[in-house]
Amino acid sequence: MANKSKSVISVLFNDDDVMLKSIKPIREKGYNIREAYTPFPVHGLDHELGLARTRMAITAFIFGAIGLAVAIALTYYTMISDWPQNIGGKPSFSWGENMPAFVPIMFEMTVFFAAHLMVWTYFVRNGMYPGRKAMNPDPRTTDDMFMLEIEFDGGEDELRQLLKDQGAVEINLVEKAEEESPELEEAHA
């Protein structure tokens, strides 16, 4: 574990709009908002926090293209190359000629790959798996409370005052900055 050079305060709001409005003044004062926990997707929150756009849709496109390629390879190999048959007077001479009959398969495989692999990517990127410990520090944030975790360097009272002015309902110090402590370093080594 690296030494924590900054203290972290967690602040709870009971309204999404109040929380959203508080972000700008907090960030303008130079504090870093480490994380936000909300019970539902608050619109504009990612923008206020300055989060980059997610690339989930791009991954879906790539996976879909892979699915399409797999479907083409599968139909070509089984129907044309490995064991061509004359079914119902419709012989399998070339993939191009038979392609119209493969369109449903190509479509389904595209969707199958895009949807499933995107969802897997989503789980991996979020670090989610069955039985993982809850990521939200306070259980109320899946009900009706909105939490921000703010990093700061000293000046705790000043920050508390700012948050109170912004309408916070609860403020807790969750992590204290650690002094350079040689004993701890050794204990970890």
Binding site: E35, D46, L51, N126, A134
Partner: peptide
Amino acid sequence: FGWGGKAKHWQR
């Protein structure tokens, strides 16, 4: 799955 309602997770 450990869901915590983080801002980035909601965005995704």
